[in-house]
Write a protein that binds this DNA or RNA. Sequence first.
DNA 1: ACACTTTTGAACCGGACGGTTCATTTATCG
DNA 2: CGATAAATGAACCGTCCGGTTCAAAAGTGT
Lengths: 208, 208
Amino acid sequence: MPRGRVDKRQAILQAAFKTFAREGYGQSCVREIAAEAGVAKPTIYNHLGDKETLFREAMRAAAGRTVGQGLAALDQLRDVQNDVRAGLEDAGHRLLLHHCDEESQALRRLLHAEAARFPELLELIQQESARHLHDALADRLARLALSGLLRTNDPDLAAEQFLALLTGPMELRSRLGTRKVPDAELRAVGRSAVDTFLCAYAPGSVDA
Amino acid sequence: MPRGRVDKRQAILQAAFKTFAREGYGQSCVREIAAEAGVAKPTIYNHLGDKETLFREAMRAAAGRTVGQGLAALDQLRDVQNDVRAGLEDAGHRLLLHHCDEESQALRRLLHAEAARFPELLELIQQESARHLHDALADRLARLALSGLLRTNDPDLAAEQFLALLTGPMELRSRLGTRKVPDAELRAVGRSAVDTFLCAYAPGSVDA
DNA sequence: ACACTTTTGAACCGGACGGTTCATTTATCG
DNA sequence: CGATAAATGAACCGTCCGGTTCAAAAGTGT
């Protein structure tokens, strides 16, 4: 058990998030977090003065860790030549993987559960994470629409509905995150989502 | 302040749910619930022996209260003559109202937050509530398909996607339930959902 | 080797909470 | 009215938790 000034802070934040995710905010005690981090209790209060700020910082760190993953899922949507369906299915599958990632799920669950006690976190993370993802997807879809590969004049709505078709069905299928959904089912959900999305947004449809 | 044997039990369960919804399970103390219910603390332990069973029973009661509302939203889908769009929009709007109802939101939030500590509740309520709603909607859609008013051979998938198109966009717009969404926005979401749903499921489309 | 900072363990404090006990009061019912 | 059952308030117990204190130990820079 080494002592001294290693990156205790990061270990603390990581252990804190892990414990909060496992037990919830109110049921987690700082003793347990200290044990999980392999650190003495006063060390926690030295680095972060408070259980509340400990929670906030742990959440912010976890959000920062997970936000890149989500955006990365949209990268191969950038250079779709003509097979829109394949590109959307691939991006959809990656988004679903990100959505089912344990850390991502825990983050959403904690954010949802403690939204009343930490309203600032809600704005900060929700804006920084979900909103970024939404906007990035809307940008990609707008590009595809400009190229004539998609038909929409409201890429924001299109992004909203694509994400809904992807993540909506997961709540039920994963039983709110308590069941691990096999990859084949993920692919099937993604395929169905792309199917109906393209019915509405592929060039050559009937609806405005 | 009347004493004696009135329906204390129901008052307790209602106050318990209200408090749990406001503070979360771990942060709620039985003293506060007793005060909220206008009842002495031992009375709670007489009727329900434990904080955990108090939580369980309060959740079950709230679920029972809210499940009927959800199913009722689908009633006018039973006798749609030919204007499928109007019927779906009406049902969608009612579903959104139910989804945004404070008790319904609190129930989902608590279920989601304490899913790890009360796994049985998750199965019980999720099955009894969301699953019922899903099945009922799938039934209605299957009837419409039989009448030739809809085109699908997988009404379960259609129901899943219709619900996703309705409730998915709400998570962002309501900021996880912390913002009250005006009715006009609800109607707009419902209209958009019906638009793309009908693009995929109206008779006379291209996709299989 | 030296002074300086950080970490550690352990003990400690005040408060809150879950749950119980009990004597007293209140309503219900024959 | 009298007996029975339920509700009350208040005190109580053991426990756990957030947060602090402190002296000793371990690491760091020169």
